[in-house]
Simulated scan of single mutants.
Amino acid sequence: METNLFENVLELIGNTPSMRLKAIESYFNIENKLYAKIEYFNPGGSIKDRMGVYMLQKAREENMINSDTIIIEPTSGNTGVGLALYAIKYGNKLIFTMPSKVSLEKEYLLKAYGAFVVRTPTNVKPDDPNSYYSVSEVIKKLIWKKNKKIDILEIKNIVEYVQQLVNNNDLDKLKEILKEDIKPNIYAYSPNQYENKYNPESHYIITAKELWEQFDGKLDYIFAGVGTGGTITGISKYFKERSNTKIIGIDTVGSIYKLVKDGMDIKKALEHAHTYLVEGIGEDLIPETVDLDSIDDMVVVGDQESFSMTRFIAKKEGILVGGSSGAALFGTIKYIKDNNIKGKKIVIIFPDSGRSYLTKIFNDDWLIKNNIKINDEKILEVLL
């Protein structure tokens, strides 16, 4: 009998496994059942496959895109791959903007799917004309201005032109383009994962339901990193409609989420914001896709602890994950120990694969260059 056969790559998304972290439980003397939901089993290698495809499916249903539309998005990499999986099936071209701190592997990965990538500075405010948010708007407006289907050479020329503006720090020209009043058209579309309601909805409809069915609704805690906030917001809404499961968010040092969650004014919180190395979690803005009220509590984890735990997971459990997964696990263990939590069933979302960070997190030379210590077990003693 033929089984487990699929018609296209989109059908492979979801139904990812959850694995008990017995070696971690034993090592850190944890009296709870810890499960990792391992999202790198998605075909694009991360949880963002779910959201990326869902947003574009909805855009097509609402006649906002067709096969002539160029998809443009600011991304740290993973959302871009999810969008690319959809675009390949439906024939869309892709342009992504990406901050310079994001690993080279992610840039190469997006290019492997046929996308164009524009790199932007990391240490700039979201509304700066050369931030990766603003630069994506610049590209979109330049395509709208043409008001026609453009070929691959024209796309290449636009990408090279914008990259040159960014490299030359030509803020005046970038501002000029951003201020132009250009009527939108079908030829360029940005899903905008930071504002798109279908980001959290995808996790409410798909991810949360999957988790619920895996554990028959019997979960005491769910821990997840907060990036755009779509994952944790969607999951929280689903579970809180059905159970008393506690939802705990993982933030990073340099982000403003925990500060705002604790009641600090956003403007004041931004005074404490600074760059950090871990990718995929934390923000220096509050996206429309996050509902901080739906999160019961938050834990802040630094780069050092995130990376030490990420490397430790690979050696202890044989799971190669990214830095946000390490942050999530470190934050989980810290939280349950600080609050003396015992006898509970806990799931931690592991968003992506460590293969996208081999030249960074798993490269001792890069870590040392960035003032990150590599004696992982010594660093993690704080949790014992």
Rank of each mutant, 00 (worst) to 15 (best):
L383D: 06
V53G: 11
I71N: 04
L12W: 06
L259I: 01
Y132Q: 04
I65W: 00
I186G: 02
E279T: 02
M64F: 09
I206G: 12
I374M: 08
N8P: 10
N42V: 03
P191N: 13
F307N: 01
V118I: 14
I222V: 07
A224Q: 08
L10I: 15
V300T: 15
K22V: 14
Y204M: 11
D172H: 11
K148W: 07
A314L: 13
Y161E: 13
D181Q: 15
L329I: 12
M1E: 12
L329P: 13
L56Y: 10
Y198R: 00
G225I: 08
Y187N: 03
T252H: 06
E195C: 13
M298C: 01
T245R: 04
N130F: 14
V260T: 01
K342Q: 14
I95W: 02
V321M: 15
F239C: 04
W366L: 11
T359P: 07
K373V: 14
F96V: 03
P99E: 03
S190Y: 01
Y27P: 10
I158N: 02
A327S: 11
K146L: 12
Y132W: 10
D338S: 06
E137D: 10
E107W: 01
K125S: 13
F239H: 03
S190A: 09
E11F: 05
K316G: 07
K378Y: 13
G254R: 06
I232E: 00
M55P: 13
N4A: 12
N130E: 13
Y54E: 10
L380Y: 05
S306V: 00
G52D: 12
K360F: 12
Y27H: 13
P126M: 05
L21S: 08
S356E: 11
K156H: 15
A84C: 08
E180G: 08
N32M: 03
M309C: 01
R60S: 10
I248H: 02
V290Y: 03
E154Q: 06
K240R: 05
G14S: 04
G282D: 05
K111L: 05
F6G: 11
L174S: 00
E2K: 14
F330N: 04
Q214P: 09
A273K: 12
K93W: 06
D364N: 14
T245L: 04
G280Y: 00
V260A: 01
N192C: 10
F223W: 05
G263Y: 08
L329K: 08
D291E: 09
G343Y: 08
I349K: 02
K209F: 15
K197S: 09
I205G: 03
L56C: 12
Y189W: 00
S308Q: 02
S46M: 08
F330V: 08
G323T: 07
V124Q: 02
D216W: 05
S243M: 00
Q163R: 09
F350V: 05
I70K: 01
L165A: 06
K146S: 03
G82F: 07
E154L: 02
S243D: 07
I247L: 00
E11K: 11
S67F: 06
D68N: 15
L211K: 11
F362E: 05
I206S: 14
V53C: 14
